[in-house]
């Protein structure tokens, strides 16, 4: 079966939804959280850099939401896809801001408040390295629109990880900053492991080739990589017996999400569907 035909088959959109939305929601939540540094980061230069990174993440989320919107339309209509840019944007917004909280698939790792700079760097490091492994694997997805978008996304992500690694080096090397970094990593390990929680319908996603690797296989790959990298800084990886904190992929939201989401959707909710 030709992969692109396969991707648009009736019913496939429902199968692919948890995969597409877990990717999109992660980028969306993290993009929002890190955009909270805009205007108040510790240095003007980093303020500008962090704004760019968070805009990239939201841009990636938008591209992924668009795939989901497009697939949903194709699945419910035999006609060629013909939405105007405005209509697509409105549907993307509905997906981004208008779902019930239990309908989001984001990881808790992505949802947390930015915390202090050490927390932001530690979280981003765990997230970016995990995302790197995930995007690498999904570039070979049988879902062609996804694989195509990820090629572009990965180009931008390279710069994010470069930026992140510079900060990891700096914080790890500074006697005053190192304890903050270690504390942040320590508090984040359960969520970083939970990032790899099995997706809804994962068996079928793997069997259809939409996911070339299972979440568990990707987690192992990621752990091997970052354990080696952290070791260079004299930092140990997560304890072997540590329980991953899961739930995000099944619609459970992290502590603090309620308040955050009330703020994010405050204006949107005034008139859902209105043009602003």
């Amino acid at each position: 079966m030709h992969p692109s035909t396969h991707a648009y088959e009736h019913g496939t959109d429902q199968l692919l939804r948890p995969l597409l939305l877990s990717l999109a929601d992660d980028d969306f939540m993290l993009g929002y959280r890190d955009s909270e540094w805009t205007g108040i980061a510790p240095m003007l230069e980093e303020d500008i850099a962090m704004s760019s990174v968070s805009q990239d993440e939201i841009g990636h989320a938008r591209a992924l939401y668009e795939i989901s919107v497009e697939m949903g339309r194709r699945a419910t209509s035999d006609e060629e896809y013909g939405g105007s840019p405005k209509t697509i944007a409105r549907e993307v917004d509905a997906l981004a801001y208008g779902r019930e909280k239990t309908e989001y698939h984001s990881s808790w790792l992505a949802e947390h408040h930015r915390g202090d700079w050490a927390f932001t760097i530690a979280r981003r490091y765990l997230y970016e390295t995990a995302d790197e492994v995930r995007l690498e694997a999904l570039s070979g997805s049988a879902c062609t629109p996804l694989a195509n978008v990820l090629t572009k996304v990965r180009r931008e992500e390279r710069y994010h990880t470069m930026h992140l690694r510079t900060w990891l080096d700096r914080l790890a090397a500074s006697p005053a900053a190192r304890p903050r970094l270690l504390a942040a990593l320590h508090s984040l390990w359960p969520d970083a492991l939970g990032f790899w929680e099995e997706l809804e319908g994962e068996d079928s996603l793997v069997a259809s080739g939409a996911m070339p690797l299972s979440s568990e296989a990707m987690r192992e790959r990621w752990l091997t990589r970052i354990t080696a990298e952290l070791e260079e800084h004299g930092i140990s990886g997560p304890d072997a017996g540590l329980t991953p904190r899961t739930g995000g992929r099944r619609g459970e939201r992290s502590p603090g999400f309620e308040e955050f989401w009330a703020e994010v959707t405050q204006v949107y909710r005034l008139h859902p569907g209105a043009t602003w």
């Binding site: 955009s35 909270e36 939201i58 917004d93 204006v267 949107y268 602003w276």
Partner: peptide
């Protein structure tokens, strides 16, 4: 208002 922008487009434009 960066967190309260009512659409993805406005969110990106305002952050930028």
């Amino acid at each position: 208002w960066i967190n309260r922008a009512p659409s993805v487009r406005r969110k990106l434009a305002l952050t930028s």
